[in-house]
Computed example of a mutant assay.
Amino acid sequence: MSDKSASNEERFMHMQVEELAQVLNDKTHVVVDIRDATSFVNGRITDALHLTNESLADFLREADPDAPVVVCCYHGHSSQQAAQFLVSQDFTKVYSLDGGFTQWQSQYPDNISR
């Protein structure tokens, strides 16, 4: 079975909403939200950046690739693909937020910006 060096391929990690809540105040992690614009405007994790096809190039150019990045979507599925993409762009610490904004909103309703 040929496993074309998949074992040493860099991959994203998973983060639970509880873990994000613990590090959010430190401002050490960058949270990027890939949901649609209306959802983002109606509620997002405090200090999250809206990452869209239009803003992606600027983000890749301006972001610190060594800063931890947490990708947030609706439920934690689409964020996995986006997180893997950021890893492929030489970001070193990338997390997909398990449960996404839906779980964040249910557990941390006071930590949402509108």
Rank of each mutant, 00 (worst) to 15 (best):
E19I: 00
T38R: 14
V87E: 03
V69A: 02
T52K: 06
S39N: 13
D47K: 14
F59I: 08
Q89C: 00
R35H: 00
S55R: 02
H75I: 08
E54A: 11
T52N: 03
Q22Y: 10
S79F: 09
A37R: 13
D58Q: 08
F40K: 07
I34R: 01
G76Q: 01
A57F: 06
V17Y: 04
E19W: 01
F40T: 00
R44S: 07
L86H: 01
A57L: 01
L24P: 11
S78N: 08
D33M: 02
H14K: 13
P68D: 03
S79W: 04
A82T: 05
D64Q: 01
H75C: 14
T38Y: 15
R61Y: 10
F12V: 15
S78D: 09
Q16T: 15
H75W: 10
A83C: 02
D33L: 00
V32I: 11
A48E: 11
Q89L: 02
R35D: 02
H77I: 14
Q84Y: 06
L51M: 01
D66C: 04
F12Q: 10
F12I: 08
F59M: 07
E54M: 03
A83D: 02
T46K: 15
R11V: 11
L86D: 01
Q80I: 10
V23T: 05
V71G: 06
L49T: 05
E18C: 15
F12P: 04
P68C: 09
R35S: 00
A37T: 15
R35Q: 04
C73L: 07
R35G: 05
D26F: 12
N42K: 13
N42H: 15
Q81C: 05
S79D: 03
V70E: 09
S78R: 07
A63N: 10
S55C: 00
I34H: 00
V69K: 05
I45D: 15
V69M: 08
F85T: 03
V31L: 07
R44N: 11
S39M: 01
L56P: 02
L24D: 09
D64M: 07
P68R: 07
S55F: 03
D64Y: 03
E10F: 14
A21Q: 14
C72K: 02
V69Y: 12
G76T: 03
A63P: 13
P68M: 11
F85W: 04
Q22M: 08
A67V: 04
L49P: 05
E62C: 10
R35M: 00
H50K: 05
C72N: 09
T28C: 08
R11S: 12
